[in-house]
């Protein structure tokens, strides 16, 4: 029985460690990807701007990716989610003040969850 718990503990330990190693490798890998893009852009420079289609695709990506990310969460949050997201977006765009947008959006969602 003792041997079993000991083995189990060792296995747990290995499992935790392998998660950590994987996590750190993953972080390093994402860093390498990001760095390659930064450096790659600098080196390829003028070459890239010749292909308008690709350039536009890359230009539009951050917005569409982030939007795709938030859409399911907003829909599953329902009406309060939609209102909150809309207000946040408008405030952020009109004022350019992220903090203000954050406060506006969060107070709507907190209000709905706690008082309505």
């Amino acid at each position: 029985m003792h041997l079993y718990t000991l083995l189990k503990n060792i296995l747990e330990e290995i499992k935790v460690n392998s998660f950590d190693i994987l996590a750190i490798s993953l972080i390093i890998l994402t860093g390498l990807i990001t760095y390659s893009l930064r450096f790659g852009g600098l080196v390829t420079g003028d070459l890239l701007s010749k292909h308008k289609f690709i350039e536009n695709l890359i230009r539009a990506l951050p917005g569409t990716l982030l939007l795709s990310f938030i859409v399911p969460s907003i829909i599953s949050e329902g009406f309060p989610g939609a209102i909150s997201a809309f207000v946040t977006g408008v405030v952020a765009k009109k004022t350019g003040n992220v903090l203000l947008a954050l406060v506006a959006g969060m107070s709507i969602i907190i209000m709905f969850r706690n008082f309505l």
Partner: peptide, 22 residues
Amino acid sequence: YVIGLDFVIIIIFTSLVAGFYD
């Protein structure tokens, strides 16, 4: 849940998305 932390990321991303609106 009560302070809406799970939704904060959505709000943050929404304000980021607004910045990319063209």
